[in-house]
Design a protein around this nucleic acid. Sequence first.
DNA 1: TTGTATGCGTTATCAT
DNA 2: ATGATAACGCATACAA
Lengths: 329, 329
Amino acid sequence: MAETTSAPTMKDVAREAGVALGTVSKVMNGIPVGESYRVRVEEAVAKLNYRVNSYAKGLKTNRTYTVAVLVPNLVSPFFAKLVNCLNRSLSARKHRMLLFATDYDPAQEQEYVILAEQQKVDGIICLSYNPALKVSESVPLVSIDRYFGAQIPCVSSDNYGGGRLAAEKLIENGCRNLAFMRIGSKLTNEPNKRKDGFISACEALNVPYTLKMVDDFTPYSAFEEFLREHLRGGKLDFDGIFCVTDALAYQTVRSLRSMGVRVPEDVQIIGFDGTQYFGDQDYFCSTIVQPLPEIAETCVDMILEKGLSKAPSLVCLPVMYAYGGTTKA
Amino acid sequence: MAETTSAPTMKDVAREAGVALGTVSKVMNGIPVGESYRVRVEEAVAKLNYRVNSYAKGLKTNRTYTVAVLVPNLVSPFFAKLVNCLNRSLSARKHRMLLFATDYDPAQEQEYVILAEQQKVDGIICLSYNPALKVSESVPLVSIDRYFGAQIPCVSSDNYGGGRLAAEKLIENGCRNLAFMRIGSKLTNEPNKRKDGFISACEALNVPYTLKMVDDFTPYSAFEEFLREHLRGGKLDFDGIFCVTDALAYQTVRSLRSMGVRVPEDVQIIGFDGTQYFGDQDYFCSTIVQPLPEIAETCVDMILEKGLSKAPSLVCLPVMYAYGGTTKA
DNA sequence: TTGTATGCGTTATCAT
DNA sequence: ATGATAACGCATACAA
């Protein structure tokens, strides 16, 4: 077709249609113009295969209809589904997603925030592991799962309630000696509340519990040792375990079974996140499901609709329990 | 609202530094200027927290350093990992990723291609299910897994070789009666070659095989029926099955085990893709692993480096076999 | 080397 | 309602 002739501009369309530049602009933006003019412009647009240049438009209007999303990676099913939901929510509002994977690296996170800012995005949604993240006031930012302070809105699921729910379910299912296992950052973040909720329920219901908590990047073997220590004569001290994530729950089930402990007959296990096989099939384990579509929708809503300045500084969305084979039905 | 003071521009920096506009531009682009000037500009930049406006820059230079990626979704582990790899490759070259999820909808795919074009991206990488996708010549496009014709480069793994490899492995492991199960599009696409490779190896090695192929969106129960038909007296007719994807292999294993057929003792199963638990743990099943990092790197390379016009129209990257518990070790 | 002026493609403010 | 024109922020050819 167009032999390397650069893309047509509004001026070309105006000439082709025999109208003024401003008229073309109006047609492209749905501003009413005379019927005959509109038709001529539309014909010219079709003929030239014209597309508005969003860079010129963005420069002029200072609105880019683009939102930056920062997550550690996409291979973790939880992040993948989160991004999937965010993409849907943004798309439904005619916005585009600029995606950055930070690989848990605080330096990269900071770098990408700067990049996003100079990209003049309409907003940033991030799931950050950088406690000292610096963000310019000029671009709205919503955080997922990490509370940075009152000035930056944070959206998360009800981690505390989820912890409670997990403990309550296990106890309701007959467990009388619980354990909580966590791997995670020492930084204060919302998921840490899972433990607090768990403890609160255990104490309210007067059920004994044991905690095993290690830092990020600790090898899983630490948990295996912990379990082995509590294995006496082929029988585990606990009859119910709440794992801070489905990934940990999955590994725990494997360990236990390899030790000859039956799941869920001997010990019941509940994870957290709601991870499904291939994204939409069975749950990996009995789990507390995070409301990812609602989390995504809430983030997008805050970025695009609210003034954000007086948005609530923390929004917790309700979780639910889902059976996934590692608890008694 | 904080200070509605709009973001500083180059002009502000120039004034602050007491230099001319052009000088600031040069500094920002690493073009040599007098040492003292450079320092003053850098100080002003830091003081004002200045960021170049990439929209103005893009308008001027016609380079956006942005590539659009179109995939059906992110919840499927295969797509998630692909996007993850693409993101890494793009990032390594200082490019940004605009991500679109098409949900397998041809209309949406077309819409997003148009959106990407008007976004003036430097290129488009897509995994499309729209056989009639229309794409303007003005923006380079690379396709993954679907061959659109000589004018659009296509990158895929060696599906034919993978099919052969699966059959060879099964036979090498003692199988003497194979089956191939496929769910997929009738459209000609590269993954269809998995079947051809499988057949080719079976015939070369003189091992009988059976094919079961259904269209996309057919419920899995079709395969379950197929298996049940071939179950005689608790014993399956086949001792080896090649499933076109890991997702199908996973479901097949479940069905068979629920029918009392042991995997891998009675029947061995090989899938395709190389899907791992939580993205980086064990393989879901014995599988043919797609070289996602290399596929991603190749796509990015073609988009950014080559003239693309005389890029090869089809690139097939080597696959490998990985043990995942559903074959004899 | 540094500064000045022009234009990228669009929107928006004007007269008409 | 329509058409001319001035920005938007930056890069760059050209002048100093």
